[in-house]
Design a protein around this nucleic acid. Sequence first.
DNA 1: ACAAAAATGTAGCCTCGGCTTTAATTCTGT
DNA 2: ACAGAATTAAAGCCGAGGCTACATTTTTGT
Lengths: 147, 147
Amino acid sequence: MTDTADDTDLPASRPERFHQARAAQAMAVLEDYAEMIGDLIEEMGEARITDIAGRMGVAHPTATKAVARLKREGLAVSRPYRGVFLTEEGAALAERVRARHRTVVDLLIAVGVPPETAEMDAEGLEHHVSDVTLRAFERYLAAAAKT
Amino acid sequence: MTDTADDTDLPASRPERFHQARAAQAMAVLEDYAEMIGDLIEEMGEARITDIAGRMGVAHPTATKAVARLKREGLAVSRPYRGVFLTEEGAALAERVRARHRTVVDLLIAVGVPPETAEMDAEGLEHHVSDVTLRAFERYLAAAAKT
DNA sequence: ACAAAAATGTAGCCTCGGCTTTAATTCTGT
DNA sequence: ACAGAATTAAAGCCGAGGCTACATTTTTGT
Ligand SMILES: [Mn+2]
Ligand SMILES: [Mn+2]
Ligand SMILES: [Mn+2]
Ligand SMILES: [Mn+2]
């Protein structure tokens, strides 16, 4: 045995933190596709595989597989050669993800990150921002606005 | 064609932002293992597969494969049944990652995230913090300290 | 010294998210 | 109407990062 029990771990053990980060990562693709499909439906009335793939920067078979996973998870529906639509649950996820994305970008800008960089980094960061952290960001932004 | 050219994209196109996030993610595991191996060597003089696996919260063959990748990328060395060691490049990476992790935690705390949550979220967030953003965080923390 | 325990390695399986290639279907313009 | 273009689907490849089960080697205790 090597370890002396475990460091500073009264609350979440170190392995637990890695587990959490991996779980968040597993949701990341689903979240981005849901948000993107929501965007497309709003902007152009429908979400086509080609457009999804184009905006995600992937080949269209990759988008097709992602949509298949969304469907499997009950977040989207589609029929062959028709567009993709979000279920209620999928739409709710998309909305949450969109709001969180905005908050993350705003927080980054508020602490001095250049807007362009903020937008860039937020695309990856957003998926690892917990609810607790998100609420802290919102409070910070509200307080900063009052100044 | 569907899209009306592209939204707000003078600088980094939307697909480009997703590419960037995916690239960052591809480094994440390497970064965490490098940092962990550095920690273990410092704390106990050597990094054993069992300890690496234990702290990462994975089965030991998973750690073995990660170390194999580190070796393949020139970041670590090891011989069968001996511990794992970082190359110069690996140690430099570990150091950078450790510093960035601290800065991210500090920034989160500074904007009002509970320390426990900050530590939790930072484990995933850190890998998506670009150099530009990291420097902005440092400036913010320095300014906040002066208050 | 040597048997049992612990650590490490190896093989083989899975899912996910990329990709290319090829087939099927739908849309479009004349 | 229908040929060609565009879109979508399907199949099959890859690497990464998980896992379990089993083999090998090293360490340890008597
Ligand atoms: Mn994203
Ligand atoms: Mn986003
Ligand atoms: Mn991490
Ligand atoms: Mn870390």
